[in-house]
């Protein structure tokens, strides 16, 4: 791979509670399918850098791999939220040049996203909104397990965020370069998995129509893209060894499944769509391998 200057990306990850933000980051840090990925694309490497990002990897090893689930990120002062650094090396894929990305990211407590549209919570949300605009890219993780949220939470949250974008870009034109990746998480679910190949059409337009229509009218395609992601993946999506059952286990103990899902077979942990949003957010280009 030709040595190139690494591309810096500053990404904020937001989304409601239980949308899988920390699990996504821990999965990225641990990169459980690194062997298979290296076989597929020699030179593919994800390295967590520094104590906080390394801790994410250990959380994957000590908690997710052991059949436990990560605890939620409770609402706290923004100054206490860690930054996670990653060095991501992506070799040439289908004619795209190789790239090295230096990713600096942090995820917010889900409660903050839920409070974005609430007028009486603005003073609590404000520091987070200010921090959002220190980054040039946002990843918004959503789920559709509670369909009413399309109208009651997601659209109002984006409405508020778009207002902020349009106000702030008048003062700071750099904000015009802000990219937003809207990611449907937990796509291992049977009803979502087949739709992962065209997330914009088959996931967002169909499942979150109000949010989708709003975003499409407000943001240009250069600034907005839709993705499908699954931190757990399915048992296998290889030709000849095809087992599309979600690699997750939901105990029959009365708990709400979205709050209480566990990795089913750690040895077959193959996440889906982890890198594509980061790649697009950093470069503006689309990776043409839906597995990444």
């Amino acid at each position: 791979m030709t040595r190139q200057t690494p591309k810096s990306a500053e990404i904020r990850i937001i989304g409601p509670r239980q949308s899988g933000k920390t699990t996504y980051l821990a999965t990225l840090a641990y990169f459980p399918h690194k062997k298979q990925m290296k076989q597929l694309y020699a030179g593919m490497e994800i390295t967590p850098v520094g104590e906080d990002a390394e801790r994410l990897g250990r959380m994957a090893e000590d908690i997710i791999m052991q059949g436990n689930k990560l605890a939620g990120t409770f609402k706290t002062n923004i100054d206490y939220l860690p930054f996670y650094f990653f060095r991501i090396k992506i070799p040439s894929i289908k004619g795209m040049p190789p790239i090295e990305i230096e990713l600096n990211t942090r995820d917010y407590p889900g409660k903050i996203f839920e409070e974005i549209p609430l007028p009486h919570k603005q003073s609590e949300v404000e520091p987070f909104i200010d921090d959002l605009f220190t980054a040039n890219a946002w990843m918004v993780m959503l789920t559709d397990w509670e369909p009413g949220r399309d109208k009651t939470l997601y659209k109002p949250a984006f409405k508020k965020l778009c207002e902020e974008i349009f106000n702030k870009e008048k003062i700071n034109p750099e904000i015009k370069n802000l990219r937003i990746a809207v990611v449907m998480s937990k796509c291992e679910r049977g009803e979502l998995w087949p739709c992962r190949l065209d997330p914009e059409e088959d996931l967002f337009r169909v499942r979150l129509p109000e949010t989708y229509d709003f975003l499409k009218t407000k943001l240009s395609p250069q600034r907005l893209k839709f993705f499908a992601c699954s931190s757990f993946g399915v048992l296998s999506d290889r030709i000849g060894d095809f087992d599309p059952r979600p690699n997750r286990y939901i105990p029959d103990d009365g708990s709400i499944s979205e709050f209480n899902a566990f990795l089913r077979i750690p040895e077959q942990w193959q996440p889906y769509g982890l890198i594509a949003p980061i790649y697009w957010l950093s470069t503006g280009r689309t990776l043409h391998d839906h597995r990444l």
Binding site: R17, Q18, G72, P251, D253, G254, S255, I256, F259, N260
Partner: peptide
């Protein structure tokens, strides 16, 4: 009673 508790709480 355990099921009932889990139904109402996000922490099992």
């Amino acid at each position: 009673i355990i099921r009932e508790y889990n139904r109402q709480h996000s922490t099992s």
